[in-house]
Write a protein that binds this DNA or RNA. Structure first.
Length: 429
RNA sequence: GCGGUUGUGGCGAAGUGGUUAACGCACCGGAUUGUGAUUCCGGCAUUCGGGGGUUCAAUUCCCCUCAGUCGCCCCA
């Protein structure tokens, strides 16, 4: 078999899936505390959804999307991020009419971006994200950020860095854009063709161009911070104030610009400061997107959200050396010796499971010693041994693997015996 | 898109231009024909990612290719 997983994808094996489930449970619990409700949207959408929301001059849309034609000649795209779908659903199902506003949503699932893989970056990766749509209160910006922080803290992470910035409102951005165009236009022929295209459509993207990043005009480009109008600056101040009330430390990075076009006002990233972490330190990113709902055909509802990568969260946990010790969940391993005893073993294993006692047995007809070894490796609490002698007495030999003690117990009282001894065990701990 | 690095059994990992490719783990069998640690004995790669070339001879040298991995950029 020489077929392998496609590039940039991975199998999460049984030895790892326990961690995933633990993280997922932690996340769902946090969302419950904050009263965000899960929304599940398709993994593919009409391509236009992303070109219109994420922005058709962004890297994501221009070179990272998995876009294909279906048999009906529709252009579809595997979702590269979650906000577009959530907002699309918000509009499609008229959630702006819901009694409870803002509408608070969360999602968790695979996203797809065609990129070269490296540590913490995959072509299929899992994002957890939330969206609060319908409120322009800076307090909810702080709530959104605090939920992200609280997931990380509950996962045991300590080395975190929150970076925030304000991208300003439409007016601020328009004046900044004009300044950028004026700045670059006289020398635009010195830039790459991509940048020349970006000049009128989205000059901000010129600033993170890969080709021309050494051009002297990059250094002297007008900064967004200088173009924030009064309302935008006041809004940003309020967000900072609320973060301070919540005791969440932050840094301001005036150069923080998110890679998606729909953001305005608050933008933030949470990074890992753990040493030994890969080159990619961003754990989560998000921001406000007033205007996006309208862009997708809804009313003028403001929104804010973030997305985080589960893969990177797990990497960060590892980098901070927080071990997840997985406890064995096997109560009983049943060993049947000989044909008649095996039949009994099959029956008993089934009965134990029905009584909510986890049980397993050998299906390879291995010898006693090897089965004991299996039981040991599986960290079973008890082993039941059934042979001809036990059958004659309608009993099983019950061995406590921790102490090594064993006793003959009648089949009829096996379940009670195991239940009472395990609760005693549990009480001693 | 660009660059570094790696590719030997289920896993980890040595190694050499030349008849049998170390070792460790795991696994299987036995010592112990009904009991898990340890120990001892035995078994477990006609083959060194794939293709081509150099050579009397290549897993070892050269070229190409594929794949993993890491980094740049950007992002989650």
């Amino acid at each position: 078999m020489d077929i392998k997983v496609p590039r940039g994808t991975q199998d999460i094996l049984p030895s790892e899936s326990g961690k995933w489930q633990a993280i997922e449970a932690l996340i769902r619990e946090q969302c419950r505390m904050y009263q965000y409700k899960e929304i599940r949207t398709p993994v593919f959408e009409h391509t236009e959804l992303f070109t219109r929301s994420v922005g058709d001059t962004t890297d994501i849309v221009q070179k990272e999307m998995y876009t294909f034609q279906d048999r009906g000649n529709r252009s579809l795209t595997l979702r590269p991020e979650g906000t577009a779908s959530a907002v699309r659903a918000f509009v499609e199902h008229k959630m702006f009419g819901y009694a409870n506003q803002p509408v608070k949503l969360y999602y968790m699932g695979p996203m797809f971006r065609y990129e070269r893989q490296q540590a913490g970056r995959y072509r299929q990766f899992v994002q957890f994200g939330i969206e609060a749509i319908g409120s322009a209160d800076p307090a909810i910006d702080a709530e959104v950020i605090s939920l992200a922080m609280s997931v990380y803290q509950n996962a045991g992470l300590k080395k975190l860095k929150l970076v925030i910035n304000s991208l300003g409102d439409t007016e601020s951005r328009v004046s900044h854009k004009t300044a950028l165009v004026n700045h670059f236009e006289p020398h635009i022929e010195e830039f790459c063709s991509d940048c020349q295209n970006r000049l009128q459509k989205n000059p901000l993207r010129i600033l993170d161009c890969k080709v021309d990043h050494n051009h002297p005009l990059m250094e002297t480009a007008p900064s967004l911070a200088d173009f924030l109008n009064e309302e935008s600056a006041a809004y940003f101040e309020k967000v900072k104030e609320y973060l301070t009330i919540l005791n969440i430390p932050f840094e301001i990075d005036p150069n923080l610009v998110r890679g998606l076009d729909y953001y305005n006002h608050t933008a933030f990233e949470i990074m890992s400061a753990a040493e030994g972490f890969g080159a990619i330190t961003t754990l989560a990113g998000g921001g406000r997107y007033n205007g996006l709902v309208e862009e997708l055909g809804g009313p003028d509802a403001p929104g804010i959200g973030f997305a985080m990568s589960i893969e990177r969260l797990l990497l960060a946990i590892e980098a901070e050396n927080n071990e997840w010790t997985e406890k064995s969940t096997l109560d009983v391993y049943v060993i049947g010796l000989g044909e008649a005893a095996k039949k009994k073993a099959v029956e008993l294993t089934y009965q134990l499971r029905q009584q909510k006692i986890t049980a397993d047995m050998d299906y390879l007809d291995r010898k006693m010693k090897t089965q004991m070894k299996s039981a040991d490796r599986l960290q079973a609490k008890y082993v039941l041994v059934i042979g001809d002698d036990e059958l004659e007495q309608d009993s099983a030999m019950v061995k406590d693997l921790a102490t090594g003690a064993q006793s003959l117990v009648p089949f009829s009282s096996l379940v009670d015996h195991i239940k009472t001894s395990s609760t005693q065990l549990g009480a001693e701990e």
